[in-house]
């Protein structure tokens, strides 16, 4: 209980409590509305495989947003790195070594794309929004150039096991990947020098510069980490489908933005917490599968995502204004 208290502090606490209640009430509502469909193991398992994919991408978006930027290229990085991993694995054949090399290759690509983003943003001072929007085009384009259009299939069976298998107690592996990444990012943001530098820079770039923070370095690190998140997300996505393609997960860009804002991250930079974002991931996954179970047209989902995004932004703005008075 004490741990919980320390995790939920200050202003974050209210937002996170609301998110928890929201998740709980959706869960209860769905259990009452259609217990058989919602509590079915297949549904729960489907949810557990899916939410880590966009959840980890959301962490990347969160870090970029805390630094005062944004990362719209995450989906592009995810697809490019999974395509590179697929190419490596197909070249090396079916062995553990080839899978490991594939994953390392994917991470390297994610890091490289991230450093490229960070360099353009931090050194050339091009706005993050523009850089990463271009990046999305560039990385997806490179992916398309490699695959020539169709998905790369025929990946090792064991690679598919990463997302679809389960090592412990029947819980799908991606959940553990998600938890590990969440803890790592949480530690990074909360307990390291880098973490506080990022939020200082996001709050006031000029002040950060004059208090001796190397903004360029922090920016490059930030996008490097968010690039890594992109490639981890990409590995999970490609392992889930056991194939790699340049346009998987197209809807994730909007979704991650929505999650991050819903999770209490300030779009103008400086503030954000890992617990809030994780809770928002869970809330959105529940809404998503509630939609599926109630057989609501998937386009309605796009519509509702947009409405929720606008509503959340409006509400937090209004609360902000009221508090300032």
């Amino acid at each position: 209980m004490n741990v919980l208290h320390s995790l939920l502090r200050g202003k974050e606490r209210k937002n996170n409590l609301i998110l928890m209640l929201l998740a709980l009430s959706i869960f209860i509502a769905m259990t009452i509305l259609s217990p058989r469909a919602f509590l079915r193991p297949a549904n729960l398992k489907g949810m557990a495989v899916q939410f880590p994919e966009f959840g980890i991408l959301s962490f990347g978006m969160m870090i970029a947003m805390i630094s005062g930027g944004i990362d719209l290229s995450l989906v592009g990085i995810a697809n490019l790195s999974s395509i590179v991993a697929a190419v490596i694995m197909l070249q090396m054949g079916d062995s553990v070594l080839s899978i490991v090399l594939g994953i390392l290759g994917a991470l390297a690509i994610g890091a490289a794309c991230g450093v490229f983003n960070g360099f353009l943003i931090g050194y050339l001072k091009i706005p993050a929004m523009l850089v990463t929007l271009c990046g999305l085009q560039l990385y997806s384009g490179l992916g398309l150039a490699i695959t020539k259009g169709p998905a790369i299939t025929g990946l090792p069976e064991r690679y598919g096991e990463i997302a679809n298998g389960s090592l412990i107690a029947g819980i799908p592996n991606p959940v553990f990947v998600f938890l590990a990444v969440a803890i790592a990012v949480g530690y990074l943001m909360r307990s390291t020098v880098y973490g506080s530098h990022v939020s200082f820079m996001g709050t006031n770039e000029v002040a950060a510069k004059y208090s001796g923070i190397n903004n360029l370095k922090v920016t490059i690190y930030t996008y490097l980490i968010s690039g890594l998140m992109g490639s981890i997300g990409g590995i999970l996505i490609s392992s889930h489908y056991n194939s790699a393609k340049s346009d998987y997960g197209k809807s994730y860009t909007l979704l991650t933005l929505l999650i991050v804002v819903l999770g209490g991250t300030d779009p103008s930079g400086g503030k954000g917490n890992i617990l809030g974002v994780s809770l928002a991931v869970i809330v959105l996954q529940m809404i998503s599968s509630a939609f599926n179970i109630l057989r609501i047209n998937s386009f309605v989902k796009t519509f509702v995502w947009g409405l929720i995004l606008i509503a959340i932004m409006l509400i937090s703005k209004l609360i902000d204004r009221k508090e300032r008075r």
Binding site: L254, F303, W305, G306, L307, I310
Partner: peptide, 10 residues
């Protein structure tokens, strides 16, 4: 982006 999603979804 939000308005885009609403309009496209609608």
């Amino acid at each position: 982006l939000g308005v885009s999603s609403v309009a496209n979804g609608a």
